[in-house]
Design a protein around this nucleic acid. Sequence first.
DNA 1: AGATCCTGGACATCTAGTATCCAGGAATGA
DNA 2: TCATTCCTGGATACTAGATGTCCAGGATCT
Lengths: 156, 156
Amino acid sequence: MSQGVEWALHTCLNLTWVDAPAPAGVLAAFYELPPAYLNKQLQALVRAGILTSVPGPRGGFQLARPPETISLLDIVTAIEGPEELLRCDQILTKGPGSHAGVDYRQSCAFAQAMRVADLAWRRELTAKTVADVRADVVRLHPSSPADTRSRIDALR
Amino acid sequence: MSQGVEWALHTCLNLTWVDAPAPAGVLAAFYELPPAYLNKQLQALVRAGILTSVPGPRGGFQLARPPETISLLDIVTAIEGPEELLRCDQILTKGPGSHAGVDYRQSCAFAQAMRVADLAWRRELTAKTVADVRADVVRLHPSSPADTRSRIDALR
DNA sequence: AGATCCTGGACATCTAGTATCCAGGAATGA
DNA sequence: TCATTCCTGGATACTAGATGTCCAGGATCT
């Protein structure tokens, strides 16, 4: 799974600590990431309705909605796309009794089993929101909110 | 996720219909797959203890154990390796308060959440065995056992 | 001995993820 | 109005991993 997901996850979390928009360069500097490339991931989050962007001075990115309404699956899907973990629908088109136009995701027993597992995975990621993770972080590292806020301000 | 998983899944299922070892070339011809490359995947299954290989004439690959004891996760892990779906433990080494040598998979709240989802996925794949899928196939396509057997014999 | 087939390494190719750069537009403040 | 800051989106290059091929060696069977 792509590295960009990890960046997007942590960046969304960082955005929960601040109120003003944060430029992509600041968010990248926080973890020493390549700014232009992180920017591309943030654009995907904007297209997905997770972030909003503000151009101009004092502009940047901010959360588009409350962290309680942003699930981890929202972020994963925004970066990785909606495809399933394992795509198992091609090989049977070459097997015996194959017919063009049939949806092999329906007739392949493996595809169905993999989809069950896929849905279990998505169910967990849907149940966990950015707000949940933020609460976990506060529990583990109580100084995190203030630390992150001041570090982002220092990078502006 | 790699295409080889799909090949391995279907090939293991095919091997449940026959008793004698089947050469890699025959198993590849069944789905019109590149023989040399499928062979590499089968070698991985052998190393994982899922298949056994027999050299020489009348040789080939066969299941190493009853299909009831082979889970879909066994096959996925043999091809893809044991890594988690999302590896989220690198970025925090660059963040504030980072220390070398610390296991960030323990301290990163996202890594923990992703692991929960990962385990849910693996739980489903562990619960489903090759024998289960074979039963599903028989239910959907009752002629499948005889069809597959005769087609493999025709390719020998 | 000869044929069949697995083993494992070396090698080539192709794709997707990673990363950079730049021209254009929008917002801010002087 | 003008300069500055910052997002947007396209073009481009690089890289790692997946995909695919080939071959020499060893094991097994007839």
